[in-house]
């Protein structure tokens, strides 16, 4: 395929400015069996995240006497992309994403509160349009926040990348395919601690700085959307009936 011109007159093919996020919608508590769950639409991405536990670590020898172990499964449905039917079972990409996602939440969850236990995080990509690992982490963070599992912060994730000389935020699938760099990052916003960072392509040091700056600015927007989604069901009821303080 011929490489399309991704930026025309300063705008991207979907009409966005370089530093503009796609629209994000999050709804919580969509899987009743889970301790916490969220459904997210991020542009054309559709993602479900569910959290189970803490429960007894199984098999028992996998338990850690000092903390909870986190298990994470990121997976894409076989019908989630425009290409051919996806193969079932985790591929190498999914295994790597599951690993780095798990590491984000090992940082965030107060794992030391639950020795020998296990917390499971499931991320299912129903429809994919670029940036699914970032969407998955962002959705899983919301699911966790509604679960009652204690955590230090509500992390967000987003990708920055480069098209020619332009650094852009939140690459969709087409941009991802033809971009000159892609850098997914997850951050705990309270202290701006970087929890995940991957990159491929090419970035000069200046472009790298710019990408990180753009990610932090986008993070303010994403954090706000996450917080509103988490609070909404509770606030709606408070607005209706008033709050009870005991």
């Amino acid at each position: 395929m011929e490489k399309p011109q991704l930026i025309v007159n300063g705008l991207r093919l979907d009409g966005r400015k370089p530093d503009e996020l796609r629209p994000i919608k999050i709804e919580t508590d969509i899987i009743k069996n889970a301790s916490g769950s969220a459904y997210m639409e991020w542009g054309n991405n559709k993602v479900i995240a569910a959290v189970y536990g803490p429960k007894e670590a199984l098999p028992k020898h996998t338990g850690d006497p000092e903390k909870a172990i986190i298990k994470c499964v990121y997976s894409m449905t076989p019908f989630s992309s425009l290409e051919e039917h996806g193969r079932s079972g985790p591929n190498r990409r999914a295994i790597e994403i599951s690993k780095v996602t798990k590491e984000v939440f090992e940082n965030i969850i107060l794992v030391e509160n639950f020795p020998r236990s296990e917390i499971d995080i499931f991320i299912e990509i129903l429809q994919a349009d670029g940036g699914t690992r970032a969407a998955g982490i962002t959705a899983a963070a919301v699911a966790l926040a509604t679960s009652g599992i204690p955590m230090r912060d509500i992390p967000y994730a987003v990708s920055a990348g480069r098209v020619g000389d332009t650094v852009i935020i939140d690459l969709n699938k087409l941009e991802d395919n033809y971009s000159d760099a892609d850098m997914p990052v997850a951050i705990a916003p309270r202290n701006n601690e970087i929890l995940l960072m991957q990159m491929d392509g090419g970035l000069t040091r200046e472009q790298f700085k710019k990408a990180l700056e753009m990610i932090k600015n986008a993070g303010k927007v994403i954090t706000k959307i996450q917080r509103e989604a988490i609070k909404k069901p509770y606030e709606d009821l408070i607005n209706k009936y008033g709050a009870k303080y005991e």
Binding site: Y234, L237, I238, K240, Y241, G242, A243, K244
Partner: peptide, 12 residues
């Protein structure tokens, strides 16, 4: 459970 944090629940 759903409305635990709201007032007037006993009456409802």
């Amino acid at each position: 459970a759903k409305e635990a944090h709201t007032g007037g629940l006993t009456n409802r």
